[in-house]
């Protein structure tokens, strides 16, 4: 089969032209996008003021155990003896018995401080991020317990799977340097 040089060169010319247009397109698109004021790296976080404790954080995360966990700002806590985050609605006794606790995994530690005050601590390893305690605390207490994405576990997906399932649009992207939205003034991320 004899080659047709004029045909080939025309095709090549056309292709080079299209290639040039493509490259120009990519270049300008990349330049256009990267020229924008960039906030740098971001992380996913929950705005505690928007959260309605629907419980999806525990089930929608791509990780086997959600990266969302409860955080407690002790500075805001009332140290209540009857903590509505700790006790289920109608506890048999106001003590640490498992049957009295609201938390399904027993992830809240209750410590006597002085009468009538008790301190409550979250055990992060046990917390699954279901938000039951958060609901209790926000409904009847000070709201010192709230859910946060824990960044030692979060893998920072391109789009957070929980954020797409969140009915309250409470998931926001925050600068990576300050990845928590903590309540209370004195709290510092360590």
């Amino acid at each position: 089969m004899p080659k047709n040089p004029s045909n080939l060169s025309r095709r090549d010319l056309f292709k080079s032209g299209v290639r040039g247009v493509w490259l120009l397109g990519f270049g300008s698109a990349a330049g256009f996008l990267s020229g924008r004021e960039n906030t740098g790296e971001t992380r996913w976080q929950i705005d505690p003021d928007k959260c309605i404790q629907c419980g999806r954080c525990a089930t929608e995360c791509v990780l086997e155990v959600s990266a969302v966990k409860c955080v407690h700002s002790h500075g805001m806590c009332g140290y209540c003896k009857l903590c509505t985050a700790y006790f289920e609605p109608e506890p048999i006794n106001l003590d640490e018995g498992a049957e009295n606790q609201l938390c399904p995994t027993g992830a809240i530690e209750r410590k006597f401080v002085e009468d009538p005050y008790y301190e409550y601590n979250i055990i992060p390893d046990l917390c699954v991020g279901c938000g039951k305690c958060v609901k209790g605390c926000n409904m009847f207490g000070n709201g010192s317990m709230y859910l946060q994405v824990n960044h030692d576990r979060c893998i920072n997906c391109n789009i957070c799977a929980i954020s797409t399932a969140c009915p309250a649009q409470a998931f926001v992207q925050v600068p990576a340097g300050k990845p928590y939205l903590l309540r209370g003034k004195k709290e510092v991320a360590k």
Binding site: R43, H74, E119, N121, P124, H151, C154, K190
Partner: peptide, 8 residues
């Protein structure tokens, strides 16, 4: 106590 949150 001061709230401690895990570092990224």
């Amino acid at each position: 106590p001061v709230t401690v949150v895990p570092k990224p």
